[in-house]
Design a protein around this nucleic acid. Sequence first.
DNA 1: GGTTTGATGTCAGACACTGACATCAGGTCG
DNA 2: CGACCTGATGTCAGTGTCTGACATCAAACC
Lengths: 192, 192
Amino acid sequence: MSRWEPNARGRLETAALALFTEHGFEQTTVAEIAGRAGLTERTFYRHFADKRDVLFPDTNPLGTFLVEALEGVPAPAAPMDTVAAVLDGVGLFFKDRWEFARRRQAVIAANPELHERELVKFAFLTATLSEGLRRRGVGEPAASLAAEAGVAVFKIAFGQWVAESEQRDLRELMRAAVAELKAVTSAGEAPG
Amino acid sequence: MSRWEPNARGRLETAALALFTEHGFEQTTVAEIAGRAGLTERTFYRHFADKRDVLFPDTNPLGTFLVEALEGVPAPAAPMDTVAAVLDGVGLFFKDRWEFARRRQAVIAANPELHERELVKFAFLTATLSEGLRRRGVGEPAASLAAEAGVAVFKIAFGQWVAESEQRDLRELMRAAVAELKAVTSAGEAPG
DNA sequence: GGTTTGATGTCAGACACTGACATCAGGTCG
DNA sequence: CGACCTGATGTCAGTGTCTGACATCAAACC
C-alpha cells in the first residue's frame, strides 16, 4: 500500500473544475480545492503554478499534438495549407472531448481571469505554430502571420463548436473559417 | 490652493513605469509606487483595478481612436480594406509615441504577467474592431476573422516597429504585413 | 454659514503565493 | 538486515495583492 492516494494532480483538477462550476472561480479558495482533494494548499502549489493553472495544465496535450501534426504535414506545402492541415488534425484531437470542452469553456467564459489565462495559451500555440513554420523554411513575417491566422481560425471555429447545442464536426467549422478568411483577405485586393 | 497635488493618476503611472524599469515589475510593490507618487496604497487601487493596470489604463486612447477611425472609413469597402484603412490611422496615432512605446514595451516584454495583460488589451481591440465591422453590415464569422487578422497584423508590425533601433513608419510596416497576409492566405488556394 | 461632495487616509482582514523545515513510506545499497 | 536516500506531502511563518468600512477635510454648492 502506498503512502498516499494516487493521482494527486488529477484529483486537484477534478475538484477545481467541480468547485469552480458550483461556486465560481473567485468564490473558490485554493484551500477548498485542496481540501476536497484530500490535500493541503501547499501541495496544490507544488502541482500548479497558480490557481488558474489548474484549468490549463502544463502538460498541455494540444501543444505537443500540434508539433507532431506539423511534422506530419508533407514538406512542400504553402504556409496556409500547412496550417490548414494541422487544424484538420486538431479537429480530430477534440473529437471525443466535446462535453468536457463545453464544461470547461463555460467556467472560463464566466471568469475574466481565466479568459486572460486562456489567451496566454493561445499565444503559446501561436508561437509554437510559428516556430514550426519557420523550421520548415517559412520566412518572417509570413510564419507569424500564418500562425496568427491559423489560431484565429481555431479560436472562432472552436467558439462556434462549443456554443452549439449539438456536437458538430469541428473540422468542418475550421475548414469553413479558413475559406472565409481567404475570401475576406483576398476581397478588394484589386478592385475595379 | 487645492487640497491635493493634481493629477494623482498620472503621477502613479509615471512612478510605476519608472520603478518597473528600475527594479522590475515583481520587485516593485504597490506601496512603493504609491509612496513615490505621494499617495497611499489604498489610493492606488482607487485609480487602477490592479497592479498591472497601471500600464494599461482604462482610458485607453487607442480603443476610442479605433472606433472613430472605423466610422471615418467610407461605407462600401470590403472588410479587409476597412481594416487596412483603420490600421493606417492607427499608424498615425503612434507617430509621436515611439520612444514611450519602446520603454513601455521593454517593461512588458520583461514580465510574463504584463504580457498576459497585454493580450487582454489586444483581445479587447479585436472585439471592438469586430463589433464595428458587424455594425457596418459585415456578417459572422467574416467580421471576427477580419478583426483577428487586423489585430494580428498590428501585433506583428508593432513588434517590428518597437524592435528597430531607428524609428520607421509604422504604417509602412503594417501595409507590408497586410500584403504578406494576403499572399500567405491566397497561396495554394487552387494549386495547379 | 451650513451642508454635501469627493478624493484621500487609516485600519483590519481575506486570500494568493513562497521559503524553510519536518515527516515518513518505499526503494537502494552495502 | 539496517543505514541511507528519495520524493511527495504536511506544517508554519511570512510577504504582498486586493477589498470593505469608516474617518477626514478642502472645495463646491445652496
